[in-house]
Design a protein around this nucleic acid. Structure first.
Lengths: 194, 194
DNA sequence: GTCTATATTAAGATAGAC
DNA sequence: GTCTATCTTAATATAGAC
């Protein structure tokens, strides 16, 4: 079997146990391979496994998440499409985010630059959608950051409360949440009639 | 030295490295104690260390975070006070949340129930503040969850982007964010004059 | 309460047969 | 490409002196 077949399984393991918690024994058991076979596919050991998984996820983002924001339709439609892709990526809120996992533990320094770049790419893509809707650049960037914050935070709370409804609700509300920015709110306030 | 003196140091280590990444060697080095001395204070090893750290954090929450929501003042004031306490707890966004750390890795099952309880207590305290302001119970609970989501998500993004301004901004905006709920927004929309 | 020394187990990694 | 067997290192844990 080519090593690509094992990447989804490795992603699953790293998300569930983290980099330090995903031991070679667990990986061997989950993949059905012996430790030596794992080193045949990934001579650099666990670090190379994580590098491959990150490349796999980056490819998925490029093929699924970013295109969802770049096709036809207005911002509302695009953000809804992104929500659908996020639903798949995080399996309805059941799975933690690999990037969040990589922010602590012994792998922190090794992978931080790549994680940062992926966050920035994601934020820039959302901000572009909001700017195309006429939003000012700085506001769009802050709202895009808020989108990522809501996704990451809702994943944590869904898992903390054992209730994926939290993730579901945040994803559904995302278009409304982002398109109602603070300037519009002050406009609403100023023009209030009662 | 009594073991209580080592709890802040242990908290720091578990937040930085996670449960699996915080090895006894690192703990020994950071505390300045030998491994055997660590077992004198915590006969149950790392698991007992984490239990003690969780109790320490729970005590801090009870003495600092929850009172910030229960004193004098309106909701705006209370949420600002909570923001100040969160700023201390997370050291201006530099430190990850221990609860989020505990959601993955090999300690997941052991500590999940306690983490869930702490999240629920925090959410209930925020919701109570919002209800005292006249907010309907269900909306208040969802807004309280949103507060926790924003805090957790902004910590992740601050660390992912290496930019604590993200955390700072979210904390500052928290009162406005929570007190402008969806029903008020539809009110604004309905009453718009232009 | 802290140490040195040591035991035990598991994790990461490799050699070489098939 | 996968295996068994083995090696090395590190992690968890304990015994017993001071």
């Amino acid at each position: 079997m080519p090593k690509e077949n094992y990447l989804p399984c490795l992603l699953q393991l790293f998300r569930q146990y983290g980099y330090d918690g995903a031991t070679l024994s667990k990986i061997a058991e989950a993949t059905g391979l012996g430790k030596a076979s794992l080193y045949h596919h990934f001579p650099g050991g666990k670090e190379e496994m994580m590098i491959s998984v990150l490349a796999y996820v980056e490819g998925w983002l490029g093929k699924n998440l970013l295109p969802s924001l770049q096709g036809n339709g207005n911002a509302q439609v695009k953000l809804q499409r992104m929500g659908d892709r996020l639903w798949e990526l995080y399996e309805g809120g059941e799975q933690p985010c690999l990037f969040a996992i990589l922010l602590s533990g012994s792998a922190r320094d090794t992978f931080h630059a790549q994680v940062q770049r992926l966050f920035e790419t994601w934020i820039a893509a959302i901000a572009a959608v909001l700017m195309a809707e006429g939003m000012e650049a700085n506001v769009a960037k802050q709202q895009a950051e808020k989108a990522v914050i809501l996704v990451q935070g809702s994943l944590i709370l869904s898992q903390g409360l054992n209730d994926v409804q939290v993730f579901k609700r945040i994803i559904s509300d995302l278009p409304t949440e982002l398109l109602l920015n603070r300037e519009q709110l002050s406009e609403y306030r100023t023009n209030r009639c009662y």
